[in-house]
Design a protein around this nucleic acid. Structure first.
Lengths: 201, 201
DNA sequence: ATGCCGGACGTAACTTAGTTACGACTGTAA
DNA sequence: TTACAGTCGTAACTAAGTTACGTCCGGCAT
């Protein structure tokens, strides 16, 4: 042919195309053909770089955690460790609600047949490690009750994640307008619960 | 033909077949053809009763909440309202972990393109209403801090749901064996946080 | 310089799975 | 008895993940 078949597609540009499609059409619209078209190549191009749709989703999974970490790392300027933790909690929801399709790929099993392999899962838990550090700081400063930081961080994560997932599943008893306020108060509840001295059971 | 084409399939028996397939093959294996084969009819049988795969999943969604409610309603014999609430929390996880595929259909968006309509969502929130009642009881008895019961119930639900979803997503930093213990302590944490008097912010 | 080789890519086809057009059968009611 | 409504099967249509196969390109040894 006269013209080159196409410009060589880097893995990154193809991943960017996948992100575009995911944002535009959601997890259900994330088709190999759509990604290929967005990237300006044919379907086999996707397969040479990612092996399968699963590989593509795995790349989106990891990419999501990197963007997510970056968003949480943007939080700064809080006066205390606890205030920082609270600000991170607010930023968490902001990112998740702002990127619902990406969040659901990361946490929700929204792509059929997709299950992250061990490496992507480790990447996910790495984000959790940052949270543990911030919890640890708040314990050191005496703002949170001394306890096993990993388990307390997991408790915080689970609570926040639960709020976000219920909201993304549209399971909200009150009007949507109030979701942010309900979340804010929930964040206060879980944090203050960790400040109080827990009864000996 | 000599024999009748097939025995008439009731909607219920077909739903039961769908539950069997969902349990056996997971959400990804929930194919109209598989359900039809399990029910002993052809694919069109599914369509006459459910209209579409979406209708079938919607039926599974509602069916899940009914089973789920029944499981929670089995909890009894607790000495106090708070003990009952805690027992319900344990039963919640037991059911979810015991029926992960069904739970994910109800909450996780595990079936592509499926979004519950208004009616199924109302059915889901009905389960939430029971929880609100139990929380209310524990406030009346003075075991939980007086507060808006709906919002406190939502907080409990979100926390529990978050733990369960993280576990179902295999996002657990510690070995699986400990998941139940971590959950138990998490339940203690959230409940005791609701017992303590929260600082005025 | 020339020919070989591996990676990247496109075309076209294969396969699976949701869906539907069409016709046949059953039981009920007028 | 006949018309009708509901149920069901056969076979086909369509969308989407995947792959067989051939081509092109750039680097490298001879």
């Amino acid at each position: 042919m006269a013209s080159p078949l196409s410009t060589p597609q880097s893995r990154e540009s193809m991943l960017a195309a996948a992100v575009t499609v995911l944002r535009r059409d959601g997890a259900a619209g994330l088709r190999v053909r759509a990604v290929a078209e967005q990237a300006g190549c044919s379907t086999t191009g996707v397969y040479t770089h990612f092996g399968s749709k699963n590989g593509l989703v795995e790349a989106l999974f990891i990419d999501g955690f990197e963007r997510f970490d970056a968003a949480l790392a943007e939080v700064s300027g809080a006066a205390t460790s606890l205030a920082h933790l609270r600000a991170v909690g607010l930023q968490y929801r902001r990112w998740a609600i702002g990127h619902p399709t990406h969040y659901m790929v990361m946490f929700g099993g929204s792509v059929p047949e997709f299950e992250p392999g061990p490496d992507p899962l480790l990447r996910a838990l790495q984000s959790f490690g940052d949270l543990t550090g911030w919890v640890s700081d708040a314990m050191t400063s005496g703002e949170l009750t001394n306890d096993e930081p990993g388990e307390v961080a997991y408790h915080l994560w689970a609570t926040i994640h639960g709020y976000v997932m219920l909201e993304l599943a549209a399971m909200h008893p009150s009007p949507d307008l109030a979701a942010q306020d309900v979340y804010r108060r929930g964040l206060d509840r879980v944090i203050s619960g960790l400040r109080a001295v827990r009864p000996a059971r």
